[in-house]
Structures are given as C-alpha cells and as structure tokens.
Design a protein around this nucleic acid. Structure first.
Lengths: 200, 200
DNA sequence: TGTACATCAGTGAACGCGCGTTCACTGATGTAC
DNA sequence: TGTACATCAGTGAACGCGCGTTCACTGATGTAC
C-alpha cells in the first residue's frame, strides 16, 4: 500500500527521532533494526527504503542529536545583553552538571551518551560525530563569551571537566550513589565559582 | 583429557587476562565467549568450567584491570620523600593526559575504557566497577598528597578533567586530529600548571 | 477532468550467520585402598 | 609403592534464538495521456 510522499518523509523523520532517543539511552549497537522500526510504528522490512544500511542510521541520528544540543547553545550566544547572556550560560552550566542530567536515562548531550563508544564505530559515524563535536565546541565558546584563543582554551578545559564529572558520576550512580554525589558536588563547586567570577 | 589443577588455574588466569585486554580494546559486549577462549588458546565449550555465565567474566576482568591501575597509584603514595612523591605524581598525570594514552588501542585506565558503557551493564558488573572506582579515587587522593577533605575534592576535580579531556580527545582522534590535539593540549596546560604550583 | 499504468513505501516471510549455552564424550589426573 | 576407579578440565557438535539483510508481493499514490 503506497503512501503519500509527505507521509513517507514524516515516517523517515520519526525513525530518526526514535533512533536518536534509543541511541542516547542504550548506545548505537544495542538497538536493532526491527526494534527501531517497531518504535516508529513500522515493520522492519521497510528500513532499507530509508537507509542503505544499519550503519547509515547511526550517522543520521548522531547529526540530529547534535543539531538540537547546538541550537540550545546558539540561542545563548545570540542573547544581545552581555549580563543576561552570561547568566544564561551559567544556568546552562549548572543544568549540565546536575543530578537531573546525571540521572537521565537518555542523556541529551551526545558526548555523555556516545563519546566512549565512538572510537569503536564505523568511519561514517565517527565523521558525523566529529563534525558535531567541532560545531558544538565552537558554539560553546561563543555562548560562554570566550571566542578569543585563551578563552576558547578555557572553555575546552571547563567542558572537559563537565563531561568527565558527569561520565564518572553516571558510571557509579546505581552502585555507589554517595561516591557519585561526591564527584558531582566537586564539579558543581567549580561550576558555581566560574559563574560568580566572570572573566574580564 | 584432564589436566593438573595448576594448569587449570593458569588457564583461568589467562582467560581473565585476555578478557581484560579485549574489553579495554572493544568494550564488554563486543567480545564473544568463543573469541575470548580462542584468544586464551582454548575452545569455547570449556568457558563454563570457569565462569557461571558470560556476565560473570566481565566482573572478573573489571577487577583485574582496576587492581593493576590502583597498584600504580599505591606505588606513588608509598614513596617516602615528599618531593620525590610529588614528582612521581606529576609524571603520572602527564602520562595520563598524553597523546600516547589517547592513541592506545586498549586504554590502561578502566574509566577511559568503560565509564560510558557501565550504566548499561548488569548489576554484577556495575558493582565490580563501582568498587574499583572508589578504591582508585582513594588511591589517587593519597598519591596526590591530598587526603584531607578539601584536597580530596581537588583531586576529584582534577581527575574528572583528565577523564573528560581524554574521552573527548579519543572520540575525535580518527576523524579530526587537530581538534583532538587542541582538547588534549588545553588539558595538558592545566596538568603542567598543577605540577608547577604544588599545594602547601 | 478522467483514465490507465507505472511507481514505490510498507509488509512479512525467508535467508544465512554468529551468538550464548548445553551436553555427551575423552582421557590424564587425583584419590582410595 | 602399586593398582583401580572416580573426577573433572577441556573438546566440539548441537540447540534455539535474534540479528541484519533480501525479496516477492500489495495497493494507494503519482503521472502520462
């Protein structure tokens, strides 16, 4: 039963959206073709009408996840009033390094969800991810008012710490909540300190 | 053909050692029972003489990897002369946040290899990992001469940054070496700074 | 605008494959006498 | 110390299962006239 072009395009979008959600929850490799299509309300046979292979969907989902994360940062960068912008960025940081973000089943940040898996993925996925991370870090530097070289370096240092703290805190959250909280708290202390003393 | 008890124990050790190496390279889920036994010079059928299930070997391998990492830190903590100890720790940090460690196929540090995967593993594996990380961070705080509460917090902050920087640098190393180097360099600047200005 | 036909998104059975796990079997080791 | 037998680490065939991928088929949509 053929369907309209619009309907088909809509279906494709739904498949990518579901892939983005499932991948963030469980990583690339643990989500099968059949399960993904079922989640999108379709049957597995139609998968290859949309993607040349299983690998291709990873790249598509990766792009989608990044574009959402980057949009959030761009919105901050585009705030005209400097003080308001800085406040928006501080609040971004505080939300990032938070118990809510640690406890999310499907982390919104692609680096938290994927960074460890990416080196083991196909070149197609790795390329899509790398392009995403580059754009993300550019947007981060802009959003944090630190686009000059020294500032960019500082933004990278900050961000590495967020990712490390969140990754470590997530990894022991279930088995050792106290340790997880301690790691998170230590990182939050620095986030708050940075929020207080904004750079000249 | 029955073999000696010593030979059997040796075989078991070899299986765990191979698991530790393969897991660090490719993560827990990508290493099959048959492949692992082949790597240890055995056939797949004998696997269940050593482990009750596939899951059990993850925990055993996890413990082994941690015990090696922790031994390195303990050796530093046990250096008697304070200046020598600080120098040893600085050199540990510089080796950790290095291009060599980023480019290693099988990262020696369990957090670089596993932290992202752990939340998706069975409770048995998560518990083994959490116990390992707790012991590792304790050893890290001791090795860095920072066992008082404020110092421990500082050690956690430092370590989170190492892990984040290395994870991010690894994730784009193949597709975008320049970005990878930039992330690593930014982190190394802080590592060096800390090495120069040791705490009172 | 109406008709005839080609297109193609979606369906579900089928494929080959590798996985984790089980099991009957082997034969040297370990043990009881 | 020597002998007879039980033990059990290791072997490799076999299992059921779920995977990614293919394919003949369906039938409403899109298109050519």
């Amino acid at each position: 039963m053929r369907i309209t072009k619009d309907q088909a395009a809509e279906n494709r979008e739904r498949v990518i959206d579901e892939a983005a959600k499932l991948f963030r929850q469980r990583g690339f490799d643990a989500v099968g073709v059949a399960e993904l299509m079922r989640a999108a309300g379709l049957t597995h046979g139609g998968f290859y009408n949309h993607f040349p292979s299983k690998d291709a969907r990873e790249a598509a989902a990766c792009e989608r996840i990044f574009s959402r994360s980057i949009a959030n940062l761009e919105a901050i960068a585009e705030v005209a009033e400097p003080a308001t912008r800085r406040r928006a960025f501080s609040s971004y940081a505080e939300n990032y390094v938070s118990a809510e973000n640690r406890d999310a089943l499907a982390p919104r940040c692609p680096m938290i969800a994927f960074a460890g898996d990416v080196p083991r993925q196909s070149a197609e996925v790795r390329d899509a991810y790398a392009e995403g991370l580059r754009a993300y870090l550019d947007a981060l530097a802009r959003a944090s008012d630190q686009s000059d070289p020294a500032g960019r370096q500082h933004a990278l240092q900050q961000y590495a710490q967020w990712v490390g703290a969140l990754t470590l805190a997530r990894s022991v959250a279930a088995s050792d909540p106290e340790l997880s909280d301690e790691i998170l708290r230590a990182a939050r202390v620095q986030v708050s300190a940075i929020a207080d003393t904004s750079r000249p």
